[in-house]
Design a protein around this nucleic acid. Structure first.
Lengths: 157, 157
DNA sequence: GACAAATCTCTTGTATGCGAGTCTTTTGCA
DNA sequence: TGCAAAAGACTCGCATACAAGAGATTTGTC
């Protein structure tokens, strides 16, 4: 203990190097990936989260905001803002629930929103592939697994 | 290809499942860890980034904002805001550079800022240990390595 | 049928992040 | 020396995130 105190000052005996703290490491790694993706999506004027919302709608058009938020683990306040911007960009529309539930707004892709599936899908797939290659197939697979576990997206999902 | 198109609609041949995209996975994993840490630090009224800035100052008091930003990979705009709030909380002070460079503000810990090293250090170390246990030592070490690599904090650093 | 509890959406306020730009000061180089 | 370039800190605007809560609507239950 003593040599640690000498090196880092009092109180440091139980303090880890910042660069070894998971909160710092994962935050910075996520920051890097997000920045890459933001750049890759920029030509279409779409942000990473906006891509995620679009992807959810490509899988199933006409979901409620709450349903999208559940899948993407997004707060209702965040969803509202993202949908506002997607709507302003002309990629989605809000429409009333045919079932008659007046609390609900169903989110529908516009033609322009649907048209982005192919190019954006390729763009993201290419980035995933590039990162898998950068890390190597084996390390990449282990990273994917650990992240799925941390984020609560168990393998079964 | 055809069966994929049938399952997911046109354009999907090259689109990966959202839950398999690294940008989504790492973002959500980081979100979870950050939320945990935010909660753990809440009793002291300190946020995760504020902890990181404090940690940098515990290692070396009296750094310039630019130097802190370099280590933490933070934009100057972000640093300014974080320091504003730390100063308002009475944990740090801005002081002129003794070297006479009038562009620079050196950031110094107050007594209250210094006093947080032991309890916050223990708090974060405990979280790291808990997460290491949750993942298992081996998977944790591999995750740490992969994240260091992604974030540009190579092993040598 | 009525009412408490739950749902869905949206608003407000605060805290990162980043792009872009400003102002001041310092450096480097012709 | 003189002046363009760089550096440090800051501002503004926009886009996530989340806590807290408001308003409208629906559901479950007695």
């Amino acid at each position: 203990m003593q040599e640690i105190d000498e090196r880092q000052g009092k109180g440091a005996a139980s303090r880890e190097r910042l660069e070894d703290c998971i909160s710092f490491l994962i935050g910075k790694a996520a920051q890097r990936v997000t920045r890459d993706i933001r750049e890759a999506l920029d030509p279409w004027g779409v942000t990473p989260i906006q891509y995620a919302v679009l992807a959810a709608l490509w899988d199933e058009d006409g979901q409620s905001g709450a349903r999208i938020g559940q899948r993407l683990v997004l707060d209702s306040a965040t969803i509202t803002g993202v949908l506002d911007r997607l709507q302003k960009a002309g990629l989605v529309e809000r429409s009333p629930d045919p079932g008659g539930d007046r609390r609900v707004n169903l989110i529908r892709l516009t033609a322009r929103g649907r048209a982005l599936e192919a190019p954006l899908g390729r763009c993201i797939a290419a980035y995933n592939a590039a990162l898998r290659e950068e890390l190597g197939a084996e390390q990449a697979e282990r990273l994917w697994q650990a992240l799925r576990r941390l984020g609560g997206f168990a393998a079964g999902r």
